[in-house]
């Protein structure tokens, strides 16, 4: 699916993450992930908790625990491989400067004992060398954080304002890649929409955005492309329009996820995902898939042309979430 490797802000090839557990057991948290994100583009990585999407994000930021082993590559800006760069480089030149992190729980990410102003000042000084009240106000304004709340402490902010404060911090370094890890968890629908619309605005200014989320409605609203992860693998990458609209997803798991939404069938996919420490030989979704046959249980489908499935769906009529919601 990579349109142009050279132009990509982030180009991930065959990224795998293994955790070595006590007793020599291996957990295959991420296997063979391949995707890229271009400037001005938003890729949404969706999947349920435990599917490996957060591990993938941690791998990109160099924040994996010591028992993790990574293979493959994740090249940022054509010149630095995040998987081999080393903590010193990542801390000094990558995090904040080349990758802006929009965190999952902004309240926890902000320093509780310091005002928003103090935190913006410090990050400005560190990343840009700029000082002064005007720069702070400007940094706040970029994330629509109100100037009259700058002297508040994180616990004095609503969830939405805490999210904006964290986003303001993430934007300071003018990083070409924004990585948003479940930025809308626990937010109300209105706030979800405002948060993703603002992230979209920052993307439209030319940044690349990788958003990791289990919120499909948020993904539909913001993403140009969607990558679906299941049991540690990306099983489908598709343009957001046809994925959420017609003809719909091609992978049976992706279709199941969409059909489970309350604005659609509200029907769960039977069963649960397999353990990452004991993946079956064939397709990891076979035990839950209505289309599975003998080949599916013995031969693992390769990820090819944006899909990892032996019997992909085609031309399934489906309608968009927003449309379904409007009809309801």
């Amino acid at each position: 699916m990579t349109r142009d490797h050279a132009a990509a802000v982030l180009d991930v090839q065959n990224l795998s993450v293994r955790f070595r557990m006590r007793g020599g057991r291996d957990i295959a948290a991420v296997t063979g992930a391949r995707f890229s994100v271009a400037p001005g583009e938003c890729l949404a990585l969706v999947g349920e908790s435990g599917c490996g999407k957060s591990v993938l994000a941690s791998a990109l930021l160099g924040l994996l625990p010591a028992n993790a082993q990574t293979t493959g590559s994740a090249v940022l800006g054509g010149d630095i491989d995040l998987l081999t760069a080393g903590e010193r480089t990542l801390a000094r030149t990558v995090r904040g400067r080349r990758i802006g992190l929009v965190p999952q729980s902004p309240a926890a990410h902000l320093t509780p004992v310091r005002t928003v102003r103090a935190q913006l000042e410090e990050t400005l000084r560190e990343l840009t060398g700029v000082r002064g009240a005007a720069a702070v106000r400007e940094a706040a304004a970029r994330a629509s954080f109100p100037a009259d709340h700058l002297d508040r402490y994180p616990h004095e902010l609503s969830g939405g304002l805490a999210q904006r404060a964290a986003t303001a911090l993430a934007l300071i370094g003018d990083a070409p890649l924004l990585l948003a890890d479940e930025p809308t968890t626990g937010l109300d629908r209105d706030l979800v929409e405002r948060t993703v619309d603002e992230l979209r605005r920052h993307t439209d200014e030319g940044r690349a955005l990788l958003i990791i989320t289990h919120d499909l409605a948020a993904a539909e609203r913001i993403a140009d492309r969607v990558a679906v992860m299941y049991a540690g693998r990306i099983v489908e990458i598709a343009d957001a329009g046809p994925f959420f609209g017609a003809p719909g997803p091609r992978h049976p798991y992706a279709k199941g996820l969409l059909d489970a939404l309350p604005e659609r069938d509200f029907a769960p996919i039977p069963g649960m995902p397999p353990e990452l420490g004991a993946l079956p030989d064939g397709c990891a979704f076979a035990a839950r898939c209505t289309r599975a046959d003998a080949r599916c249980t013995t031969e693992r489908p390769a990820f090819d042309d944006g899909l990892a499935c032996h019997h992909g769906l085609t031309g399934r009529a489906s309608h968009s979430l927003t449309k379904a919601a409007a009809d309801a």
């Binding site: 349920e48 626990g186 489970a260 029907a267």
Partner: peptide, 17 residues
């Protein structure tokens, strides 16, 4: 109370069922 706020669509539908 927000039983499914942290969960994916399929698990949400399963628990509601």
């Amino acid at each position: 109370d927000e039983m499914t706020a942290m969960l994916d669509a399929s698990t949400t539908a399963a628990l509601v069922a």
